[in-house]
Amino acid sequence: MVIDKIENQHLYVGLSSRIDKALNYISKTDLVNTEIGKYEIDGQNVIAIVQEYISKNPEDAKQESHFEHIDIQYIISGEEMMGLGILTNQVPHTVIHEKDVAFYPNDSTPFKLEKGMFAILYPNDLHCPGMKCGENSKVKKLVVKIRI
């Protein structure tokens, strides 16, 4: 798991060529004016998903992990709390292989992500995105799915 500001992306060059492509896309794309939707960065290997939503109450958020993808979650505008944890011996209550996701009881530690911040989340990183910071508010986020 990596959490940082996009201006520090140079520190993570070389983690993988696909992560490099994703961070490059984030830093060089006018995401504020990018429409909601799905965009191929490197075919099906690196896919960007621009989304907007109202942040959730913590009890409505779901802690998850993935099997075949690394997530990079970047806050374009707004802010949210994201629960974070390390997958050790937790047992998922729901697994949906065709959507590459497993859901777990939420026992994560919340961390505030603000505009311009990103999180790189590997398959062993539990994350519970989209939780409110104080009040429910609008968030525009980019989620990049990187096939491992």
Score class of each variant (00 low, 15 high):
residue 12 Y to H: 13
residue 13 V to G: 07
residue 16 S to R: 10
residue 16 S to D: 12
residue 16 S to V: 08
residue 19 I to D: 01
residue 20 D to K: 07
residue 21 K to L: 08
residue 23 L to A: 02
residue 24 N to E: 12
residue 27 S to G: 03
residue 28 K to F: 05
residue 30 D to V: 04
residue 30 D to Q: 02
residue 32 V to P: 00
residue 33 N to C: 01
residue 33 N to W: 01
residue 34 T to L: 05
residue 35 E to N: 10
residue 35 E to G: 03
residue 36 I to C: 00
residue 37 G to L: 04
residue 38 K to N: 06
residue 38 K to S: 07
residue 39 Y to L: 03
residue 40 E to K: 11
residue 45 N to S: 02
residue 46 V to E: 01
residue 52 E to R: 09
residue 53 Y to W: 12
residue 54 I to Q: 09
residue 55 S to D: 06
residue 56 K to V: 09
residue 57 N to H: 14
residue 59 E to Y: 15
residue 59 E to N: 15
residue 62 K to L: 14
residue 62 K to P: 00
residue 63 Q to K: 14
residue 64 E to H: 10
residue 65 S to K: 10
residue 65 S to M: 10
residue 67 F to E: 12
residue 71 D to C: 07
residue 71 D to K: 07
residue 72 I to G: 00
residue 75 I to W: 00
residue 77 S to I: 02
residue 79 E to F: 05
residue 80 E to V: 06
residue 83 G to R: 09
residue 83 G to I: 08
residue 85 G to V: 02
residue 85 G to M: 04
residue 85 G to F: 03
residue 85 G to I: 02
residue 89 N to K: 08
residue 91 V to E: 11
residue 93 H to S: 11
residue 97 H to M: 13
residue 99 K to T: 06
residue 100 D to G: 04
residue 102 A to F: 05
residue 103 F to S: 12
residue 103 F to R: 11
residue 106 N to R: 15
residue 107 D to C: 05
residue 107 D to A: 09
residue 108 S to V: 13
residue 110 P to A: 11
residue 111 F to R: 15
residue 112 K to T: 13
residue 112 K to G: 06
